[in-house]
């Protein structure tokens, strides 16, 4: 009986919504209502549009860059915390996740306060006398989107990396060091191969957050920072074209799914610790 409940849950709230999304993506939109006239026009217009492929490309590049940047920052930080902080390292992990308890929207909005023309950075630069005019590329730009998405991703990569690094037996590292491996080689040949799968999970989480986020681009991205998510949302809202929105969603899922599969393939490690 319990297992039937699980199956019912999955059928009604996971399988059905995705099937309906697929179904909606081949419906015809007539002034805001989806009519059951099957068509592939939605997909045709996604592919042939001037804007959509461009936005998809830009979104993927920005998301991959943010996830990569977050990994490059958070993975070494996790390694450093584990090896240098002794018994304070759980505090380091706790401090890493505390920001996640603060409203996501407000954390993103805070970057407006920091990066704006009369924001913290520009005011400081002007006060010190380094700049005469505010650096306007800081806010309402792809740079701002990149920084903010990196910022929100770091804790996720940190935690996934940390849990993997923590499970590597110290004896392996000592064996490598005693055999004369330099610290760099220990990381390169022992630590990284044993933890890259988890780092990749963190990277993938970051990528998913970045791809699915329409709040950050519209808050700090300005016109030049518009991303794919805003397009989907506008089909639900202003444009009121759910079938096109569904087609856009399906395209995004397929592309992101392929990307994540590639990441998983590239970072696979043969053999396990257990």
């Amino acid at each position: 009986m319990s297992f039937v409940a699980v199956l019912a849950w999955v059928a009604v709230l996971v399988v059905a919504p995705n099937m309906l999304l697929l179904f909606y993506s081949v419906l015809t939109n007539r002034s805001g209502r989806a009519t059951t006239q099957l068509t592939l026009d939605n997909y045709v217009s996604v592919v042939t549009s001037d804007v959509t492929p461009l936005l998809l490309g830009r979104t993927l590049v920005t998301a991959v860059a943010a996830a990569a940047l977050a990994t490059v920052i958070a993975y070494p930080a996790a390694l450093f915390a584990l090896r240098n902080l002794g018994r304070h390292r759980t505090l380091a992990v706790l401090l890493m996740v505390v920001p996640l308890w603060i409203s996501y929207l407000v954390r993103v909005y805070a970057w407006k306060i920091i990066l704006g023309d009369s924001g913290v950075i520009n005011s400081t630069l002007a006060a010190v006398g380094l700049t005469d005019e505010p650096l306007s590329f800081l806010l309402y730009s792809r740079f701002a989107v990149l920084i903010t998405l990196t910022y929100v991703s770091i804790p996720f990569v940190f935690v996934t990396s940390y849990t993997a690094l923590e499970r590597i037996p110290p004896s392996l590292l000592e064996a490598a060091e005693d055999s004369g491996a330099s610290p760099f080689r220990v990381v390169r040949h022992v630590i990284w191969p044993l933890s890259r799968q988890s780092a990749a999970i963190g990277f993938s989480l970051a990528l998913l957050i970045a791809v699915g986020d329409y709040l950050t681009p519209s808050l700090v991205g300005g016109l030049r920072g518009t991303m794919y998510g805003s397009l989907v949302v506008s089909q639900f809202g202003i444009a009121n074209n759910w079938p096109l929105g569904a087609a856009l969603s399906v395209v995004l899922m397929v592309v992101v799914g392929a990307l994540l599969l590639a990441v998983a393939r590239l970072t696979r490690t043969e053999g396990h610790l257990e």
Binding site: L13, G212, F236
Partner: peptide, 16 residues
């Protein structure tokens, strides 16, 4: 649903 991009989940649930 945990790993799907938010707006995709949102739209699919709205449709459902």
């Amino acid at each position: 649903p945990v790993v799907v991009p938010g707006m995709v989940l949102g739209l699919s649930l709205a449709i459902t």
